[in-house]
Design a protein around this nucleic acid. Structure first.
Length: 331
DNA sequence: AATGGTAGCAACCGCAAACTA
DNA sequence: ATAGTTTGCGGTTGCTACCAT
C-alpha cells in the first residue's frame, strides 16, 4: 500500500512552464478560483499535476507577488525572523508582502546564509562563530579542544576567504560584536592578496583563542546544550542569550499585542532553529506553550528565556524587531 | 573558444496537518 | 471517530546562465 498519487504520472507534463500554460492556469483561476487543485489542471486543459499547478500559482503567477530583488530591509527582516523561527519559511514569508516561502528559502540559501557566515555569524544559531567554538570547547578536554580549533580553522577559513574575496558584506550590525572585531573585514579586504590567507587565519585564531579565554570565566553551571532543548544562559562579553537566571514564561497575551512591550518581539528569546522562542519540536507556534488555564501545554517545546528588551541581549544586539513591524502578528 | 565550476532560481518530492464526508 | 482527500510546508533536485581558467 502506498499513497494515492496526486495524478497519473504518465499523462502529466513536468518541468518548466510555458507562457501558454501560465495563461491557461491564470485565466482559469481568475474565473473559477483555486478550489480543488486536483480538478484545476483537468478543467483548465493542462497536462499538469494539480500540485504542480498550485505551486506555479502560489510561487509565480499570483498577481500580488513581487519578482524583483530583495531590498535591504527585506533581507534584514528575514535574518531577524530566522533568528527566532529558524527555517519556518512560510512564517517568515508571511511578514514580507509579495514574497513566497520558496522565494525566502532560496534567497536565504543562496545569499543570506553566506553573508552571515562571512560576518562570522553562524547562520543556524545566529551566534558569533567564535563563541560557538568556545561553547563547544568548554565541553571538551583540552586535547579535544585543540583538535576542534584546528578543524574549525580549516572549515571557516575556506568559507570566510571565499566570501571575503568575492563581495563585501552589507548588513547593518547595530552594536559591535567582539567576534567581528577580531575578524576585521574591511582591513582584510584592503590588504594585499597574498596577505589575505595568512591574515584571515591569524584573525580566526585570535578570535577563537579570545573567545575560549572568555569562556573559561563562565561558571560551569552555565553549560551549553547543543541540541538547544535545555539551553541555559550563555555568558561572555557578547552573550547571545540573555542571562536572567529565573527563566521566562510566555503567556498567550504575549503574542501580537500591538504597543505592548511584552510582546514576543520585544522579549529576548533563544535564537536559531535549535532554540526558538515559540516553536516546539513539531514546529508549532507559541500560544500552545500554555493553554487557557495557563498550564504548560508545550509537550517538549523549547525553553524560552526572559531578559532585556531585544531579541538578543543588550551587549550584542543584532536585531530589535518591535511587534508593530509585523504584518501578521502572532495570535 | 571550450570546458568546468558555481550561483540562482524554479520545480518536484514526500511528509504531515487540516479538512471533509 | 474514522478514513479518505486536500493543502501546506520544508528539503532537495535539476536546469540555466554566468564566470573563471
Amino acid at each position: 500500500m502506498g499513497r494515492i498519487p496526486c495524478c497519473e504520472k504518465e499523462n502529466v507534463k513536468r518541468g518548466q512552464w510555458t507562457p501558454e500554460e501560465d495563461n491557461k492556469l491564470s485565466s482559469y483561476i481568475a474565473q473559477h478560483g483555486t478550489r480543488n487543485w486536483r480538478l484545476i489542471p483537468k478543467n483548465a486543459g493542462l497536462q499538469r499535476c494539480g500540485k504542480s499547478c498550485r505551486l506555479r500559482w502560489t510561487n509565480y503567477l499570483r498577481p500580488d507577488l513581487k519578482h524583483g530583488q530583495f531590498s535591504d530591509a527585506e533581507e534584514q527582516t528575514i535574518v531577524k525572523l530566522h533568528s527566532v523561527f529558524g527555517n519556518r519559511w512560510s512564517l517568515i514569508a508571511a511578514q514580507l508582502p509579495g514574497r513566497t516561502d520558496n522565494d525566502v528559502k532560496n534567497h536565504w540559501n543562496t545569499k543570506l546564509r553566506k553573508k552571515l557566515s562571512g560576518m562570522g555569524i553562524d547562520p543556524v544559531t545566529h551566534k558569533p562563530l567564535s563563541h560557538l567554538m568556545a561553547e563547544i570547547a568548554t565541553t571538551l578536554a583540552p586535547a579535544q579542544a585543540a583538535h576542534l580549533a584546528e578543524a574549525a580553522l580549516g572549515c571557516f577559513k575556506d568559507e570566510v576567504l571565499h566570501l571575503l574575496t568575492k563581495k563585501p558584506t552589507t548588513f547593518q550590525v547595530q552594536h559591535s560584536i567582539p567576534a567581528m572585531e577580531n575578524n576585521n573585514i574591511t582591513a582584510y579586504i584592503n590588504c594585499k592578496p597574498e596577505e589575505k590567507d595568512e591574515n584571515a587565519i591569524e584573525k580566526i585564531k585570535l578570535g577563537l583563542s579570545k573567545a575560549m579565554q572568555e569562556s573559561e570565566m563562565i561558571p560551569s553551571s552555565k553549560s551549553w546544550d547543543p541540541v538547544g532543548i535545555t539551553s541555559t544562559s550563555f555568558a561572555g562579553s557578547c552573550s547571545v542569550f540573555p542571562t536572567t537566571p529565573s527563566g521566562f514564561q510566555f503567556s498567550p497575551t504575549d503574542f501580537g499585542n500591538e504597543g505592548d512591550d511584552r510582546s514576543v518581539w520585544s522579549q529576548s528569546v533563544c535564537t536559531g532553529s535549535t532554540c526558538t522562542g515559540m516553536v516546539d519540536q513539531q514546529g508549532q507556534l507559541g500560544g500552545k506553550l500554555e493553554d487557557e488555564n495557563g498550564e504548560d501545554d508545550s509537550e517538549g517545546g523549547k525553553e524560552i528565556r526572559n531578559g532585556t528588551s531585544s531579541i538578543f541581549n543588550s551587549d550584542c544586539v543584532l536585531w530589535d524587531l518591535p511587534s508593530h513591524d509585523l504584518i501578521n502578528p502572532m495570535e
